[in-house]
Amino acid sequence: MLAIGQPAPKFTLLDQNSTAIELDSFKGRKVLIYFYPRASTPGCTVQACALRDSKSELDDLNVVVLGISPDTPKKLTNFINKQTLNFTLLSDEDHAVCEAYNVWQLKKFMGRESMGVVRTSFLIDENGNLEHIFNKFKTKDHHEVVLDVLKKL
């Protein structure tokens, strides 16, 4: 299990433009990594659009937003274009990063079980350490929960 204060698992993933993005490249800034199941689904769209609309507040707090899902870069590009998202989405097709952050888990839906992303967010401090873990929120309130924690830090 990941714990507050320990180093965040490092990664390099392709973004929506198939450009490699390293977590280490954001040292000196806070990073909000939010894991979501799939681009362009209703809950994921609500969550992403709320973060999009909160970008100026997040910028003022020196926070970079990175969304991670098992989607392909092409699907991420379509999601960004359709929703005019203003932050980076990363493709974790083999779900290795999801596994490193313990968000790739067995899920139950309508009596069926399958492996997938459990919606969770991690706030990483300027030194690359886990500062807060968000795992109890509604998609429509996620941005407010994040901003409330950030304002208290």
Rank of each mutant, 00 (worst) to 15 (best):
L2M: 11
A3C: 12
Q6G: 10
Q6T: 15
P7Y: 08
A8S: 13
A8F: 15
P9W: 13
K10H: 15
K10T: 15
L13P: 04
L14E: 12
Q16G: 04
N17L: 08
S18E: 14
S18W: 10
S18R: 11
I21C: 10
E22W: 05
D24K: 11
D24H: 05
S25A: 14
S25L: 09
S25C: 07
R29P: 04
K30V: 07
V31Q: 13
L32R: 10
I33Y: 13
Y34N: 04
F35K: 03
R38M: 05
A39E: 09
S40F: 07
S40P: 04
T41P: 02
T41M: 06
P42I: 03
G43F: 02
Q47W: 04
A48F: 08
C49F: 09
C49E: 03
A50C: 07
L51D: 02
L51F: 15
D53H: 13
D53V: 04
K55L: 06
E57V: 00
L58Q: 03
D60E: 07
D60A: 09
L61W: 03
L61Q: 02
V64H: 02
V64F: 09
V65M: 12
V65Q: 12
I68V: 04
S69F: 05
D71C: 01
T72Y: 08
P73D: 09
K74V: 06
N78S: 12
N78P: 01
F79R: 06
F79G: 03
I80K: 14
Q83V: 01
N86S: 06
F87T: 01
F87I: 00
T88A: 12
T88V: 04
L90M: 05
L90C: 01
S91I: 00
S91Q: 04
D92V: 01
E93I: 03
D94P: 00
V97W: 11
V97H: 11
C98D: 12
C98P: 07
Y101R: 06
Y101E: 12
V103G: 13
W104R: 01
Q105G: 08
Q105A: 14
L106H: 13
L106S: 15
K107F: 10
K108G: 14
K108A: 15
E113I: 11
S114W: 15
S114T: 12
G116S: 10
G116W: 10
V118T: 13
V118E: 14
V118R: 07
T120H: 15
T120L: 13
S121N: 11
S121R: 13
I124H: 09
I124M: 13
I124C: 11
D125Y: 10
E126F: 06
E126T: 15
G128C: 12
N129P: 14
E131Y: 05
I133R: 06
I133Y: 10
F134P: 07
N135Q: 09
F137S: 02
K138L: 08
K138V: 11
T139C: 02
K140Y: 01
D141R: 09
H142C: 00
H142R: 09
H143A: 03
H143R: 05
E144C: 04
V145A: 00
V145D: 01
D148A: 14
K151W: 00
K151A: 00
K151N: 00
K151V: 01
K152P: 00
L153Y: 07
